[in-house]
Design a protein around this nucleic acid. Structure first.
Lengths: 251, 251
DNA sequence: TCAATAGTGTCTATAAGACACTATGGG
DNA sequence: CCCATAGTGTCTTATAGACACTATTGA
């Protein structure tokens, strides 16, 4: 196992971001339009090179802030917060036609942003329902149309990120990362329904989440922003792992 | 977002392997002794550079075969099989004092090998109980001694790999990857007990695993290699996800 | 008034945990 | 014989899912 620093093959290392949010009861991902070849004009995931003295997580957080203005889970910051975690690394030798690029993909779960178009240098960025970006498990995209594939291997990265988010809200309290800092049980339920693409029983859901210690902390306030009877407002509690988990309906 | 191929900072990319097995009722990991600086003489995880035209998974499988002779889940091969999956990527700028190295760690779950010392070019390799390599959650290693830290950030990589294995056997049938091709329910239970470090009720365990469709397929044979009444032999079934999952006792 | 959502209670089926009991080999 | 492990059955308790019912707002 000779470990010769001079003989290593050179790689470029990038970070790509799967940024997910829930808008209008739909799971949406952030996509940017490529302005140059390869894949010019196609939609892609945001991302960029890791700098020479930069940690991988720091690079992902920097790209996220440049694209959306979000800060990655930075307590005490005035900027909006989002959950950031490493997703997986993609390094097929052919994934970029120009050179050997290894991309460390990260997953971001963000609350619905007030500004529909993110700021920063991403002038041609949009939130797109994931169904319009990638084909669903049934093999068909929304409205019976096949979506135009994303650039590079970003279809696969996005699919992996969506599946990670879908499974992770089962056994963790991460679904609250899609909500504003104060939210109602009904709003949290609509997050689950949008991410999983199912309909949940409001009464059993209420009993489940309010009965799990540490999941939700009541703030004392109420809101009628969803219409109907005023609902209690909650903040995310300290619990990160849910035991027993939320059960995703199947079949 | 300028994407200039000529301006990227050069990285070295390696794969590191967390190879786990169960030997004598203990969860063990493969460790190799470093023969050169840095960290000369210290134990480390096996690994090596990704070649210029090699996929990440292929590089991990190659390193695994060089170190242990195992093949990664290659049906139809005569060599022993093991489960291989990507674990996570580690890229702290300071993790290797010589240069910027990004390591894509992989997790391997292997059955107990007949040869106690793996072959290949790893003359100073050993299977070590994970408790003797890293401190447990209580902050103490086995026998009240603090283990000597592994080279680089391999303590953290090994911890992450062990935790991944512990949680993954809850909701998947991956525990069978630690078993030979034919095994008994009792042998599978001892795998769970070794990986989780707990004692499970043999009767409830038997009812649970034999009642989960697709988990185990009886081969018709029996064995008395564990002593006592002859036990049925099983092969791993086609199911990969267990629903409902195995429950890890807590507290 | 009605429409909408919030929230509670009750029943049933499923499954986990505890544990008594029987079965079948080897020394 | 005893001892080990394999395998089955039974009881209790926790909880998911279905769903009846009440509560509180705005239009």
């Amino acid at each position: 196992m000779p470990y010769d620093p001079a003989a290593f093959p050179p790689f470029a290392v990038t970070v790509d971001l799967v940024v997910l949010t829930v808008r209008r009861h739909e799971l949406c991902a952030l996509a940017v339009r490529r302005g140059e070849p390869p894949y010019q004009g196609r939609w892609a995931l945001p991302g960029g090179f890791v700098r020479a003295e930069e940690d991988l997580t720091a690079a992902a957080a920097r790209e996220l802030n440049e694209e959306t203005g979000l800060r990655a889970h930075d307590p005490g910051s005035s900027a909006a917060e989002a959950h950031l975690e490493q997703l997986a690394t993609y390094g097929d030798p052919q994934r970029d036609p120009r050179m050997r690029v290894v991309s460390v993909a990260h997953l971001v779960l963000a609350p619905d942003l007030p500004s529909p178009t993110p700021g920063g240098d991403a002038h041609s960025a949009r939130w797109a329902p994931v169904d319009t970006l990638i084909a669903g498990p049934g093999g068909t995209g929304r409205e019976e149309e096949q979506p135009i594939p994303l650039a590079f291997d970003h279809d696969r990265i996005l699919s992996d990120g969506v599946e990670r988010a879908r499974s992770k809200i089962e056994y963790s309290s991460l679904a609250t990362a899609f909500c504003p800092s104060e939210f109602t049980v009904g709003e949290l339920r609509r997050v689950y329904e949008a991410v999983w693409g199912v309909v949940l029983d409001p009464r059993n859901f209420h009993r489940k989440v309010t009965g799990t210690p540490g999941f939700l902390v009541p703030t004392g306030g109420t809101t009628t922003r969803q219409g109907g009877r005023p609902a209690q407002l909650f903040r995310a509690g300290g619990a990160t792992l849910l035991n027993p988990p939320m059960l995703r309906p199947e079949v």
